[in-house]
């Protein structure tokens, strides 16, 4: 059975949703406190949404210095599947595990709404079971979700097929409508929308399932 670690920082608040979602897909999931120094025995690691360390200074700026982040970096280097959702995406960019940065939303508006996403690449651990061009309705819930990077980084993202998801209608001013990116290898992925909140049509959408199924099924050393 796939074992997934869900990292919990002081101030995380989507860890139960993430744990519940991957458990519902058959994974064996458990919480990993931010002071942990290793991730042995896990097949994948999720950094969930929330406000790690109160988002003081900048979202993710303090969380990246938590002891567990060295273990996450080591896990990622070894090819392990790493997923950052919302605040987790911000932490991964601050830690330098993903390119770019997340800025305050255009218009300084906190956004909590469903968005339609387009799958742009299937070469990541989050999208390998989806198809290119597939549209997914998944909610966003953030204030600092405007993806920003310089021209050189953007060109590199395009060249290496690292733009994983785009918004169909840009809600927050993200460069090139980017909603999620991966590293070059495709084993580290971050996105602002919350797939763990789109697991049931009864609650609005089940479109997050294909993403988390991809992730849960992704073996270590994908691609």
């Amino acid at each position: 059975m796939t074992r997934i670690g869900v990292v919990v920082f002081p101030g995380s608040n989507c860890e139960y949703d993430a744990l519940g979602a991957v458990s519902a897909l058959g994974a064996e999931a458990e919480f990993v406190w931010h002071s942990a120094t290793h991730l042995d025995g896990f097949d994948g690691v999720i950094l969930p949404g929330g406000f790690a360390h109160g988002d003081y200074l900048r979202p993710g700026a303090l969380a990246r210095f938590s002891p567990v982040m060295e273990a996450v970096a080591e896990f990622a280097r070894a090819g392990g599947a790493v997923l950052g959702i919302c605040n987790g995406f911000q932490v991964l960019t601050e830690a330098g595990l993903l390119p770019g940065a997340l800025q305050k939303n255009r218009g300084l508006t906190f956004l909590c709404q469903p968005t339609t996403l387009t799958v742009e690449s299937t070469a990541s651990v989050l999208t390998r079971d989806a198809f290119r061009g597939q549209e997914l309705v998944i909610p966003i819930n953030h204030f600092s979700g405007s993806y920003t990077c310089d021209d050189e980084t953007w060109a590199s993202l395009v060249a290496h097929d690292q733009i994983v998801l785009r918004y169909k209608e840009n809600p927050n001013g993200s460069r090139d409508d980017i909603a999620g990116v991966s590293n070059v290898e495709g084993n580290v992925v971050g996105l602002m929308p919350h797939p763990e909140r789109a697991m049931s049509t009864l609650l609005g959408s089940a479109d997050g399932r294909v993403l988390l199924e991809s992730f849960v099924g992704a073996p270590v050393g994908a691609r």
């Binding site: 800025q103 305050k104 939303n105 255009r106 218009g107 300084l108 405007s146 920003t148 310089d150 001013g173």
Partner: peptide, 10 residues
Amino acid sequence: EGIADPEGAT
């Protein structure tokens, strides 16, 4: 320079 500043703009 060149990075959008929604606070400054507001």
